[in-house]
């Protein structure tokens, strides 16, 4: 930098410094505004809690994240497992007319599809209908669901028998056991059924009695 240019540079720096030091920089804030804002800040300051340090917040945040990282996933998994177990329990106890009953039947259908012993699956379904029938009557029931459940119980039993008839040799011991258990389930219900349902249940019992052959 030449001498004259350096002198100009220095003069200008001095000029700018003087400008900052001596310049009346126009009107500053209005005194009324100054007082008003001070008052607002003091009020805000008293209302606000002591400011939290960023480090504390960051440490707290990190701890929370670590805690969440460590426990959140297992807690969520356990929660979901619990919900699933409860759902299965509630669903397995559902009876005709319940909201979850269609879900129960859908699950039953899916399991039956996967079961290689179709006839055995249908016999179990018939036993399940007898159980539902008892639950309906215990709940002070009756109504249309009883007749429908009786019909489904009989339909499942007949379907199972058709399958068993096609298979040779027929597993008579299994059939006898089924008939006995169905009797134990349905017999006590007869007196609690209305006339129509009672007739239908009696017809069912006659049918399954016909399936039982004397041993030997």
């Amino acid at each position: 930098m030449g001498r004259s240019r350096q002198r100009r540079h220095d003069d200008l720096l001095r000029q700018l410094t003087d400008l900052g030091d001596n310049l009346p920089l126009g009107p500053g804030p209005d005194p009324a505004f100054r007082a008003r804002l001070r008052e607002t800040l003091m009020a805000e300051s008293f209302a606000a809690p002591v400011p939290e340090r960023r480090g504390q917040r960051r440490r707290q945040g990190r701890w929370q994240r670590q805690w969440q990282g460590r426990w959140l996933a297992p807690a969520l998994s356990a929660g979901m497992a619990l919900v699933m177990v409860l759902s299965v329990m509630v669903t397995s106890r559902a009876v005709p007319g319940d909201m979850l009953y269609p879900l129960k039947r859908a699950a039953e259908g899916a399991i039956s599809e996967l079961n290689p012993d179709k006839a055995g699956g249908e016999l179990e379904a018939a036993a399940q209908r007898a159980e539902e029938l008892r639950a309906l009557l215990d709940a002070g029931g009756g109504g249309p669901h009883v007749g429908a459940t009786l019909q489904e119980m009989e339909a499942s039993t007949r379907s199972a028998m058709e399958r068993l008839d096609r298979a040779a040799p027929r597993d008579q011991e299994k059939i006898n056991q089924f008939v006995e258990e169905q009797h134990k389930a349905v017999d006590p219900m007869l007196e609690r059924l209305n006339d129509v349902d009672q007739e239908q249940a009696s017809g069912y019992l006659d049918y399954i009695d016909g399936l039982r052959l004397p041993p030997g």
Binding site: L25, G26, G28, P29, R34, L37, R38, L41, M42, S45, F46, A48, P49, V50, P51, R53
Partner: peptide, 25 residues
């Protein structure tokens, strides 16, 4: 002021109000 002392913040306000106001203006 960081510890929540409002008087200290008030003093800082008095000290820097002109600078901030003029910068914005």
């Amino acid at each position: 002021a960081k510890a929540g002392d409002s008087d200290a913040f008030g003093t800082l306000y008095d000290r820097y109000l002109d600078l901030v106001y003029r910068y914005i203006y």
